[in-house]
Design a protein around this nucleic acid. Structure first.
Lengths: 246, 246
DNA sequence: CGGACAGTTGAGAAGTCTCAAACCTCGTGG
DNA sequence: CCACGAGGTTTGAGACTTCTCAACTGTCCG
């Protein structure tokens, strides 16, 4: 898919919006560059719109590009031999996609919603990485953070029950910017970026088990499910208790 | 514990063996430095022996040091609220311990066997990191690899049965250097760095389940258990089948 | 209205955990 | 030298959680 995008890039002359106005510059690795360095990065990158469901990196294939997420949510997944899918992580705005030094990708990266990314050819990206030490350090910091996040997920999987996983997932989603939070401490309503099946794949459960746990939380008055993928957290304390965090 | 070690360091004048002869230099991040740069790193680091069971970093505490593993195996673990332990990863020779940019450690690091490490004060280590771009890039590469390893572990937890986890764990251990491999393709015997309880914590299972799965593999003629923590792989293909990798 | 799809609910099966007891191995002290 | 105890391991039985298979509901859209 990235190969296809590359082709598009080479034949396009679409002007890119300037990085200086980028909505994620502050949080992303680009924040370590000054305006002139940013110009160099900008010269090799292009903004791309990605549709929901589109896969930008396939596990087992070489990926000639990497990217920064500007908006939207991606999933990072793998298949087991017998065809079951496991989502090993979600990627949000300002997160980095791709491994500059890996010969082939180990996981598949797929857009869950409509997304916007800042796309770089890996070779050119590596050049900038190697000629701008602060940039490499910024990516290093981010990869350490990502590593800790991955390890927290291992903790989740290894020792938590279905109830704890679902409650913990809802808390994580409610805590993300983009969740339209209401009064301080009051109910927060947000939209899940995933279907029940997607949540099941993230949490290592089945659709039915996720559904049952959501119903249980709703019956307990901890959350409300106004419809669609909307979730309202009515009692955050109770939700944290269900998540095993208290 | 690292604090204690620091105290020892300051009061000691023990000469360190030279890095040039280091047994893990080729694989570790130090491999990116030339002999003179290595001298600078050497100047801030000291070799330390760590006894089995000793904890070098405590989750939730600031850690003023980081380190490279020269020999031995460490576990990276966390406790859930209700006191259960989960091991989120194992660290082997040439692996890196600590997060240069984290204010406090998120996981506890404990030696499983007698270990030897190359210890650095984080502040001085960061200075070298920031003044030697190739060194930062080497650490970056390693952290990407570690990230992929963590994600493979998520896959293991999310979708694999007890049988697959135990078989997969044995394969991983058998594949490590240090496993005394016999004839090509023939039986390999090695010593597990962990008790049954430790394996259970790594795999997110109970001691009893691990024991039952090992017995099952032994009964099937796939492995033999000569005693102690020794394991002999009699039929690698069968073991891979049990691990769900075929 | 009919069909497709996501979500919910139910019943039984399967896998893993919990609790309990027996078994080994090994170092210690009588 | 042997008895003993501690710690780790194995085995068993039953309980519990989650999965699987299946049916049903609701919504959206043609």
């Amino acid at each position: 898919m990235f190969r296809a995008l590359t082709t598009i890039l080479q034949s396009t002359t679409m002007p890119s919006p300037v990085c200086v106005l980028c909505q994620v510059r502050g949080e992303s690795i680009c924040g370590s560059l000054d305006d002139s360095e940013l110009g160099q990065l900008h010269a090799i990158g292009r903004r791309q719109h990605i549709q929901a469901g589109e896969t930008v990196i396939w596990a087992g294939e070489e990926s000639p590009n990497c990217a920064n997420i500007l908006s939207g949510v991606f999933k990072l997944s793998a298949l087991t031999i017998d065809g079951r899918e496991q989502i090993v992580g979600l990627l949000h705005p300002a997160d980095f996609i791709g491994h500059p030094y890996a010969s082939e990708a180990e996981f598949t990266v797929t857009a869950l919603s409509e997304c916007e990314i800042c796309l770089f050819p890996t070779a050119a990206f590596v050049e900038i990485l190697e000629s701008h030490p602060p940039f490499a350090l910024a990516l290093l910091k981010r990869s350490f953070e990502t590593l800790d996040a991955a390890r927290r997920r291992i903790l989740l999987f290894g020792r938590q029950s279905a109830e704890e996983r679902v409650a913990g997932f809802l808390l994580e989603m409610a805590g993300r910017p983009g969740a339209s939070r209401a009064t301080n401490g009051g109910p927060v309503t947000f939209e899940l970026p995933l279907s029940r099946g997607g949540i099941a794949d993230v949490l290592g459960l089945t659709i039915e088990t996720v559904s049952r746990q959501m119903t249980k939380l709703r019956m307990a008055g901890t959350i409300a499910l106004p419809g669609g993928r909307l979730v309202t957290v009515l009692n955050r304390n109770a939700l944290e208790r269900h998540a095993g965090k208290i």
